[in-house]
Nucleic acid binder design. Structure first.
Lengths: 245, 245
DNA sequence: AAGTGGTCTAGACCACTAC
DNA sequence: TAGTGGTCTAGACCACTTA
């Protein structure tokens, strides 16, 4: 029944082709965060495949946390704004295992130029314009994370300090709502270091206290890097958590 | 066509029931690590389901890294002995991103009794017999990880120091080959600390050097905890790596 | 050539949600 | 009640491996 089209002469399975067309629709903001995508039957017609093939494509997008299915309601584009999804990339827990989302404070915002390391991580040219943001996270008067965030200005053309301060909830939530950027994957490298005088002051600890240093690159669809940040974490009360299956 | 059997009156989907029967077969060592499980058509007959339902059960076991499919060859029970699978739970990379598997040295082996924390992590009684193993990992004369491993003696009845030293490759490989224990999932908590005198000596560094402290619990099928270890890592040349999709 | 898993079809019925 | 996703069937043909 299936015929060879030029489009799949690359040897790609049909469901992979359907998947990449769906990613294209997401990238083009045809389907926006929080919205439902068309019903499965409609998509079957649109892509000219059977329900099983379509569902296999959606299965992968759901596994990648790009879409969320809700029985009886529809299939939705993932939003980082609320619910447990907001915490997916926040991996710190208190010693008793509880996970809370701390307050976010912007302590610095400036324009700068990418140095060699930053350019490599963000996939841009050395000297390209970037935004440099420093944040502190913690509970009440007990900050425990300082982050140095770098964003390519070309990717966030409308970013301003006022906009950033207007919604101090989650950076990724703001990327999504104000800039149409969806973070779907992160990569991190963790090492141990000692608190500098600057970090010690921001974290209300003594210089020389052991800290985690967490380098993170965040990616949008198609493995496009959109953020590079370095976090310094005081693990006296909170630890970095992970699970590998 | 499908009838209501007493067995799925729990409301579980049929493929979940098939999956748990397959986990039972794995736990009972009917299918052993490295071996192929029966062909899909045979399993369809055995479980009385269609190919699509059976494949959905296998899909989940593959996603959990319990089985591995190889087109044209068969579906196999995961082995930790060789290939990239051996490194799945080893998450340290050099600064240039390369991943190598370091040498393993056993520096201590003894029997002990579980303290409160260890008992909680391993799901055993306080005072129950455990094995206490201390290892060092590194390249040549450059060790960078010290690990304090605790195992429930009841789970590893045949464990001896000689057996452990006989095959110093991968602990999880040995769990699988010599004890029939398959580690399928780990959970880790990472914090920053300073090197004690003992750790400094084992790692050839100065006391007070910042180290990662990595608490890990390893689980077998059905979320049974089988190992609790605390690692101390010198991140001068190697970092802890992770990816979240 | 025979056997394996990989993909795909064209439906069916069920469970849940919203109106 | 209508529409959604969730599950399941009973095949088909393809790609790959082994002999």
């Amino acid at each position: 029944m299936r015929e060879l089209h030029p489009i799949d002469s690359l040897g790609l399975p049909l469901y992979k082709e359907v998947k990449s067309q769906m990613v294209a629709a997401l990238s083009a903001a045809e389907w926006k965060p929080g919205e439902a995508i068309p019903a499965e039957k409609l998509l079957c017609v649109r892509f000219g495949v059977s329900i099983g093939t379509l569902r296999k494509a959606i299965d992968e997008l759901v596994a990648e946390n790009i879409l969320i299915r809700q029985q009886g309601r529809g299939t939705f584009v993932t939003v980082h704004s609320r619910g447990p999804r907001q915490f997916r990339f926040f991996n710190y827990v208190s010693h008793d295992g509880k996970k809370d989302y701390p307050q976010l404070t912007i302590v610095h915002f400036s324009k700068a130029k990418a140095d060699k390391i930053c350019a490599a991580k963000l996939g841009i040219a050395v000297g390209a314009k970037i935004f440099n943001i420093i944040t502190v996270r913690g509970f009440d008067d007990a900050p425990f994370i300082v982050e140095d965030v770098k964003l390519a200005a070309a990717v966030f053309p409308r970013m301003t300090e006022a906009l950033l301060r207007s919604r101090p909830v989650s950076l990724y939530n703001q990327f999504q709502n104000d800039h149409g950027i969806n973070v779907v994957r992160i990569e991190e490298r963790v090492s141990a270091t000692l608190a500098s005088a600057e970090h010690a002051e921001l974290l209300s600890i003594k210089p020389g206290t052991p800290l985690l240093q967490v380098h993170r690159v965040a990616y949008s669809y198609n493995d496009q890097p959109v953020e590079y940040r370095v976090a310094y974490v005081n693990t006296e009360h909170y630890e970095y958590s992970r699970s590998v299956a």
